[in-house]
Design a protein around this nucleic acid. Structure first.
Length: 877
RNA sequence: GGAGGCUUAGCUCAGCUGGUCAGAGUGCCUGCUUCACACGCAGGAGGUCGCGCGUUCGAGCCGCGCAGUCUCCACCA
């Protein structure tokens, strides 16, 4: 017989055991069955830098819901897991760990460093995977990948060489964003701007001919060392005559020209800008237009170069102080203003980024962006919610070339070799040993690695075996849904799109499901510095993975940020417990493990009602899931399980289960089990552990819920008419409860209930549970009762009498009845007004008008019953 | 400067193509050792759906304007 279940659900006792059962059953493994339709998701690979946070928990939960849903629907589902080497982030962490040991990268060399990095990967990559499992993620672990594994590396080389051969990857000297802390270039997307309090230094540069000074302002006086011009707007009348004249740069005493350029805003500051091509992106452009010299004044770690002995070795900020002091001494400093402006910082370490001219590798973006824009414009890939298309388009339409080389060691090394003899570059899929141009063996590989996003961009196909035409690639590519946060669109989504289109000719996925950020209870971003982060694993430990998943999937609409509220997880835990106890109830009322057949000929009214309700639920949940309305789906399930199934159906079944009629009891058992196991199936994607655990202990067909069939709408169980009848009974029960509560009658004080109705059969059928749920001793259905000294209750379909003489105050009863009558008359007038509006009747859809007519009929019935009651009361008085 | 989100019960939020849409959870109040569950049961109070104008037979839901708030992008030295 069924095993005893504990009174409270204990996730700790269940989760690991169930997860192991799934693994043993190999249920997550995609079979690559050519006969079946596929549904594929590739995981946004978590970085191996640390551990899972709430954002991951949300991301993985959404993916797992979709995957489990499709798996149960019979698709050949693949959820491909893996991790990202996260070059800059991981390297920074390792360097930091080494610093604590007093070791530098240079001390141990490239190979030694990579050895440490792979150790790091083994340790933290493995930890992330374990954390994913704790959440219940049903990934195909046999297909786990890593962005730096052999297959992905091969894909990276293939793509690099492809693009190089097409002229879409080039090497050039450009101004790029440089992080002086990480000592590497970073891409535009990796720069974060933040407002900082700074100063505006007003300086004056003397004319060479001694004809006075030109005043200008700067936020970065130290870059003066690299000034090679001063610019004014060509239309600026004030400076018309000085364009072309020569200035003497203070301190350095170099001669620099005054140039005219549209870039200068006339009405900002003095309308004069000092031009430092080597250290400002706009100045660099100006420099190109005017053929200005580019003078680099900073080292890799943002110190002044040796060319300026007085300041050499000072960092940017020390040099600023020293130079300002010298400017003052020289009489070149006019004044200092406070000024607040935006400063670019490195998204990984927060250091102020230094724009810098440097030789780097770039991807030509314009030719790649076009097809990626088209693919979304023509609907081959859809964003959910659609509004995120705008971010995507905006980025692609304004894109600049992508700087892909990084001065880091942890990553895919750039497959380019430089020849010391002929100076040419050899780019190759295989490691090169001789120069492709002159055959010299005197070649060395570029020391740099690729931006970590270069490999992530290939993730949807590199993980499936591309560039080989593998079975997996043919079967599962393109993938279906990509789930990620809106903050990752420019980094990743966009790049996967153009990479997929360029390399495979197809979009990498048909849908991008975008979610928001998980914030703390006060709406702040969770961050290490604030210390307000909540560890999903601790939440799982306390409340269970299902409770966490449920909380993350509900009460939030797609793309919007959500707050993490502990009380909501508690509520979810309580809900899990509710399901658990519903299961306990059913199990303790079953006689065997056998699946009882449903016998429609024995169905009672309530059975038809619940089956019909379940039908609606299955159809609704399926539709919501297909439309990515996960929050709506889960809300329907919650309401059904708690309000419909537990509070009504289970309660109503109790009289049959405890009664003499074994056939009736068996019918109740069969329907209870059928509906409940079906509901568990619908609930499974959201709360996989508890549903599987319960399902296993209930009578069932099949091995496991994870691979059970998804419930569908069944026409044979569509009992609309019976639902209406049953709702009449519910209305009576609610009304009686309500009146008793109003009169402060305890449930223990039971009383006879008499019902007069035009549909007496309905109420005879429901007599047993009216007794149970409305604290009645017995139910009498008829059409004539002694109303003297009885409490009267009127519903749409019935008049109810409760003989409780001691409680009846005829005056008050009358007053109440009249009040209800007034309300009903108001309703009636409102509906009649609507129906007498010809515009409404002619323009509104027939169904809406019909609904109003039905409402009118109901109200009229109620009014008739109320009037009748009032008349009788008056008589008695 | 540009774009977008949000503004619905004390709090946190749902409300799909406009027509039982005024909801849920939590909190609060009143009862309840009802044979699954007090992580529970029954009942209840609480909102002119930010403000104004418009479209419509009908508007939290569509349009315009305003206010508050948050975010993203750009960035004037």
């Amino acid at each position: 017989m069924n095993r005893e279940l504990a009174k409270q659900y204990d996730p700790k006792e269940v989760e690991d055991r169930i997860y192991q059962m799934w693994l043993d059953g190999n249920y997550f493994h995609a079979k690559c069955d050519p006969e079946k339709k596929t549904f594929t998701i590739v995981i946004p690979p978590p970085n191996i830098t640390g551990q899972l946070h709430m954002g991951h928990a949300l991301d993985e939960t959404l993916q797992d819901i979709l995957i489990r849903f499709k798996r149960m629907q019979g698709y050949d589902t693949l959820w491909l897991p893996g991790t990202d080497h996260a070059s800059i982030a991981t390297e920074a962490k390792i360097v930091e760990a080494m610093r604590k040991e007093g070791v530098t990268k240079e001390d141990i060399g490239r190979d030694g460093f990579l050895e440490r990095a792979w150790d790091w990967k083994a340790k933290y990559g493995g930890r992330i995977i374990e954390q994913l499992k704790k959440l219940g993620s049903s990934c195909d672990w046999e297909r786990e990948r890593f962005t730096l594994d052999d297959g992905c590396s091969k894909a990276v080389r293939e793509v690099f060489v492809n693009l190089y051969e097409k002229g879409l990857i080039y090497r050039g000297e450009r101004i790029i964003n440089w992080c002086p802390h990480c000592c590497t270039s970073i891409s535009d997307a990796e720069v974060e701007y933040e407002e900082q309090q700074g100063h505006f230094w007003h300086l004056r540069y003397p004319f060479k001919d001694g004809s006075g000074y030109l005043e200008l302002a700067t936020t970065r006086p130290e870059t003066l060392l690299g000034d090679t011009a001063v610019a004014v707007n060509p239309n600026d009348e004030r400076y018309k005559d000085i364009v072309g004249k020569t200035l003497i740069l203070p301190i350095v005493h170099r001669e620099i020209p005054v140039v005219a350029d549209d870039y200068v805003e006339m009405d900002f500051g003095t309308g004069v800008v000092k031009i430092t091509p080597a250290h400002d992106p706009n100045d660099f452009e100006v420099g190109l237009r005017h053929n200005l010299e580019v003078i680099n004044v900073l080292t890799d770690d943002a110190k002044i170069v040796a060319d300026y002995p007085k300041y050499a070795g000072m960092d940017r900020y020390e040099a600023r102080k020293a130079i300002v002091a010298d400017l003052e001494a020289e009489g070149a400093l006019v004044k200092i203003e406070d000024y607040s402006h935006n400063v670019g910082t490195c998204y990984r370490c927060g250091t102020t980024v230094e724009p810098r001219v440097s030789k780097q590798w770039f991807v030509s973006m314009k030719p790649l962006a076009g097809p990626a824009i088209d693919a979304v414009k023509d609907g081959r890939t859809k964003f959910v919610p659609q509004r995120f298309e705008k971010i995507y388009f905006h980025w692609l339409e304004n894109i600049r070339d992508w700087c892909i080389s990084r001065q880091l060691w942890w990553g895919h090394r750039i497959p380019a070799w430089y020849c010391a003899d002929c100076g040419e570059i050899t780019v190759s899929r295989e490691d090169a040993h001789v120069c492709a141009h002159c055959g010299s063996k005197n070649i060395t590989q570029d020391p740099d690695t690729l931006d970590t996003w270069f490999s992530s961009a290939l993730w949807p196909f590199s993980t499936l075996g591309w560039p080989e035409e593998t079975e997996d690639f043919k079967h599962f590519y393109p993938t279906n849904t990509l789930v990620t946060g809106y903050d990752i669109i420019p980094f990743w989504v966009m790049r996967m799109m153009f990479s997929g289109l360029e390399q495979t000719g197809q979009v990498p996925f048909d849908t991008v499901l975008i979610h928001g950020l998980v914030r703390d209870s006060q709406g702040r971003k969770m961050s290490k510095s604030l210390g307000n982060g909540i560890d999903p694993l601790e939440v799982i430990d306390q409340y269970g993975a299902d409770a966490l998943r449920f909380s993350l999937a509900t009460g939030n609409s797609p793309g919007n940020d959500m707050r993490y509220i502990n009380e909501r997880v508690e509520a979810s835990r309580n809900f899990a417990n509710k399901m658990w106890n519903a299961a306990r109830f059913i199990l303790m009322n079953l006689k065997s493990d056998e699946v009882l057949p449903l016998k429609p000929e024995n169905f009672a009214l309530e059975d038809k009602w619940i089956l019909s309700q379940f039908n609606t639920l299955a159809a609704g949940v399926t539709e919501n899931l297909e439309r990515y309305e996960l929050g709506l789906a889960v809300q329907k399930l919650y309401d059904f399980i708690w309000d419909v199934f537990c509070d009504w159906y289970i309660e109503i079944c109790k009289s049959r289960l405890n009664g003499e009629d074994e056939t009736a009891a068996d019918t109740a058992r069969a329907v209870l089990t059928h509906v409940f196991t079906g509901t568990l199936a619908l609930m499974h994607p959201f709360m996989p552990y508890i549903t599987e655990e319960i399902w296993q202990s209930m009578p069932h067909c099949g091995e496991a819920l994870v691979v059970a069939e998804w419930p569908t709408y069944t026409e044979a169980f569509n009992f609309t008419a019976e639902e209406g009848e049953f709702e009449k009974i519910m209305a009576v029960i609610k009304a009686v409860r309500n009146r008793r509560a109003e009169m402060n009658v305890p449930a223990s004080k039971k009383a006879k209930v008499c019902i007069a109705s035009a549909t007496p059969e309905t109420f005879r059928a429901g007599a047993a549970y009216i007794c149970r749920l409305a604290s009645a001793t017995e139910v009498e259905v008829g059409d004539d009762f002694d109303a003297d000294g009885a409490v009267r209750i009127v519903t749409d379909a019935a008049t109810v009498f409760i003989p409780m003489k001691e409680l009846v105050d005829a005056e008050k009863e009358l007053e109440r009845l009249n009040k209800e009558l007034e309300a009903a008359n108001n309703d009636k007038a409102f509906i009649e007004k609507k129906l007498s509006n010809e515009n409404f009747v002619s323009k509104a859809p027939a169904a809406v008008v019909d609904q109003q007519r039905q409402n009118l009929a109901k109200v009229c019935d109620k009014i008739a019953l109320l009037e009748n009651s009032i008349a009788e009361m008056e008589k008695l008085k």
